[in-house]
Amino acid sequence: MVLKKIYFVINFTIFFIHGLAQQQVHVKYYHVRSAIATLAEDLYIKDNNVISIQDSVINFNTAGTGSISAIKPGNKIVTKDYYISKLNGGDIKDFFFTGSFRDTDYFIHDKVTKPVWSIDETKTKKILGYNCLKATANFRGSSVTAYFTKELPYSAGPFKFFGLPGLILDVRENDKNYNMWKAEKVELTVDPKINFTPQFTNYPKTEMRQFIETKEAKQNKEMADLLSKLPPGTQMDTPEPKNRLGLEKIFEWER
């Protein structure tokens, strides 16, 4: 009788793990990119493949800010960004993603070091019915807080987040009201039309370091050209790398 019980437990465990291994996941996040721009981001996981697609419509809302007078509240701009990776247990993950600069789209390879996560199992939160634990880390110069669930045992999340023993359902930069992702829907199915390995053959291909250095060199040249047209003695502050806008403020090669 005891042997039968052990046999049942072993077989049930194997069946449960196999079911998770075959499970497909789609998470829709509400993503606040900046103080004025919000969009959706859809994360898809199937087998060992991961792709995150930032929605094709960015909703702008400048009400009360007055920062961009040319964009009226509620205006929309069409765009789409892809973040492609694999599930793995390494300390460095290869991401292939699309980015743009000055009306040119690029297909960029980025090697991201796994954040050193600190998990606090005493801090919990229920998100869409899933039990989540709190974790904190420094991600490329930004202090972030995430909530992840072991009930979906995938080391993945939106954007370039990974490295926790479960799927990230909420992550945000601390002390900011932007640079945040919050799960709005979780589905255990994936649209069969999702292409996990788009090639973007028409996009110039580049490495992350080259992309960042080329982009910032052009920005600095544009700033110098602007200063040359201003009255003598005019000074303008040039942001230091650590003061970059966005979540990625310091890259691995700058440490």
Rank of each mutant, 00 (worst) to 15 (best):
M1K: 10
M1S: 11
Y7P: 00
V9F: 13
F12H: 09
T13V: 15
I14H: 03
F15I: 15
G19A: 11
H26D: 07
Y29W: 10
H31S: 05
V32C: 01
R33K: 11
S34F: 06
E41C: 03
D42G: 01
D42Y: 10
L43W: 08
L43H: 11
I45T: 03
K46T: 15
N48P: 09
N48A: 12
V50G: 03
S52M: 01
I53L: 01
I58F: 06
N59C: 05
T62F: 04
A63Q: 13
G64C: 03
S67P: 01
S69M: 07
I71H: 00
K76L: 05
K80L: 02
K80H: 06
Y82S: 04
D91Q: 14
K93R: 15
K93W: 09
F95M: 02
F96C: 01
F96I: 12
F97N: 03
F97L: 13
T98D: 05
T98S: 12
T98P: 10
G99F: 13
T104L: 00
Y106K: 05
F107T: 06
F107N: 01
D110L: 01
K111T: 05
T113F: 02
K114N: 12
P115Q: 01
S118M: 13
T122P: 12
K125Q: 14
L128A: 07
G129T: 07
Y130E: 07
N131V: 02
N131S: 14
C132P: 14
K134G: 00
F139H: 08
R140G: 01
S143V: 08
Y147V: 09
T149K: 11
E151F: 13
L152W: 13
P153W: 06
A156I: 09
A156Q: 10
A156G: 02
K160E: 08
L164V: 00
P165V: 10
G166N: 03
R172K: 15
N174Y: 07
N174K: 11
D175M: 13
Y178C: 04
N179L: 15
M180N: 07
W181P: 12
E184R: 00
K185S: 14
V186R: 09
E187C: 06
V190K: 05
V190T: 08
K193R: 09
N195A: 02
T197K: 07
T197E: 12
P198I: 08
Q199N: 08
F200P: 04
F200E: 01
T201I: 08
K205N: 05
T206C: 00
E207Y: 15
M208V: 07
M208A: 08
F211C: 10
I212P: 06
E213G: 10
E216G: 13
Q219K: 11
M223I: 09
A224V: 11
A224F: 10
S228K: 03
K229H: 12
G233L: 03
G233Y: 09
G233K: 01
Q235Y: 00
P239S: 00
E240K: 15
P241V: 03
P241S: 00
K242F: 14
N243T: 02
R244W: 12
E248M: 12
E248N: 11
E248T: 11
K249R: 12
K249F: 12
I250V: 15
E252R: 04
W253S: 00
R255F: 06
